[in-house]
Design a protein around this nucleic acid. Structure first.
Lengths: 227, 227
DNA sequence: GCAATAGTGTCTTTGAGACAGTATAGG
DNA sequence: CCTATACTGTCTCAAAGACACTATTGC
């Protein structure tokens, strides 16, 4: 028989939601899916689910399980964004959702599409379930707040990428054009990337050098300003 | 009879904890109190408490209530830091704590001291209950990460303060000396403060101009880099 | 050669740090 | 006047933007 350690209070509902960002044809998008149950059943919403206390060791384990089951995604690097709460956001009771952010290249999302997930423009996702539109807005601000000098945009790209590709990813995320020369200088001086020695195969003009993310900046989305 | 919307799972324990920072004689400190109950009863820990779902509209309301009841503090500006969780951090069950940060001038803490709260050095708080040492470490990093060019250090000071006072607060928070000239330039150019026209009363040498925080940067701890 | 894309060199601007100098107070 | 503190001016250096220039590829 499940316990409620709350005694005289109703137990809060605890869920996680994940804002998965991707770049699709140069546009920043978020992964959503039609909700299989109430509240807002049938409406598009973020990938999320309840914490299963008898199964998940931590919230991160919940996220891992939810991403695996609902989007077919494994080994996704996520970062906690914030926790939203209110007595009224969920009809079944006082509810709290811990929101995470993930970033993936679009070609790694096939398992998610196979499970019915779809992409919506991050800036204009249309109507989303519950407070998910607000959450996407928060995630977007956070993404951009970090993006300017971080390694975030590399997460959108395959393991090896060219400078023009990387710059274009930066520009898509930040929504503004950057100077080519300054951009290269920064990436190199801050040692955010390392040369692979290889060159691009498909292109019409000069073949670009290929780079990969510098391993020493691993495991966080903001390996940024601190130099 | 309290409900447990979890069905076949045990309900998670949901608490908030607040890391209250203050400057005491130029040293950065955190507010702690001996815990009145398990786990770690009698050990010093952060100010915190359970979410009361039948009483608190949101997590912020929980924080407000906890600060009022356990530290006698009202109208404190808090900012959410992160949410920690695990199946084992609390002996009564799967537990999650949403951590908040607050900053107050030490002379506004008297109600807290009256209720048994005490100050510990933020860098070396000594043994704290549960995972609270880790939490203080996270809060400290966050504080410093924001502090460099934010208005955070003003929160430690009374409404009106002099440049030397403000600079000294910055230095205490960041743990490093700053150049006087550059510091003033930044504060003025970024319009983080405005002159009051008044001057300091107590001092031995030249009397300092008094400033106050620029109202237009209100309601967040990081009114910083974005210019 | 030309078109297309990749990559470099260099001038200017901005802002931070260093640090010496000046100003205003009490004695 | 001297000491103590507040405040300013100016030099130097590092990093970013602007933008013209050169390099490499396919045709």
């Amino acid at each position: 028989m499940p316990t409620n350690p709350y005694g005289r209070h109703d137990a809060p509902i605890v869920t996680v939601d994940v804002v998965i960002f991707t770049l699709d044809a140069g546009e920043l998008k978020v992964v959503v899916a039609r909700r299989p149950r109430e509240p807002d059943m049938g409406v598009e919403g973020l990938i999320g689910g309840w914490v299963h206390t008898n199964e998940d060791e931590t919230l991160e384990a919940t996220v891992e399980r939810v991403l695996r089951v609902k989007a077919g995604l494994e080994n996704v690097f996520v970062e906690q964004l914030e926790t939203v709460s209110s007595a009224t956001r969920h009809p079944e009771g006082w509810s709290l959702s811990v929101v995470y952010m993930a970033i993936l290249p679009v070609d790694e999302l096939q398992p998610a599409f196979d499970l019915g997930c779809i992409l919506r423009p991050a800036e204009t996702p249309g109507r989303l379930a519950m407070d998910h539109e607000k959450i996407v807005g928060i995630a977007l601000r956070r993404l951009r707040g970090k993006g300017a000098y971080s390694t975030i945009p590399m997460e959108f790209l395959p393991d090896e990428f060219s400078m023009p590709q990387l710059q274009s990813a930066y520009e898509s995320v930040m929504g503004e054009k950057l100077d080519q020369s300054s951009f290269r200088r920064r990436m190199i001086e801050r040692e955010l990337i390392v040369e692979t020695g290889r060159r691009e195969v498909t292109s019409t003009g000069r073949k670009a050098e290929l780079y990969r993310a510098n391993e020493k900046n691993k495991g966080t989305f903001d390996r940024s300003l601190r130099r």
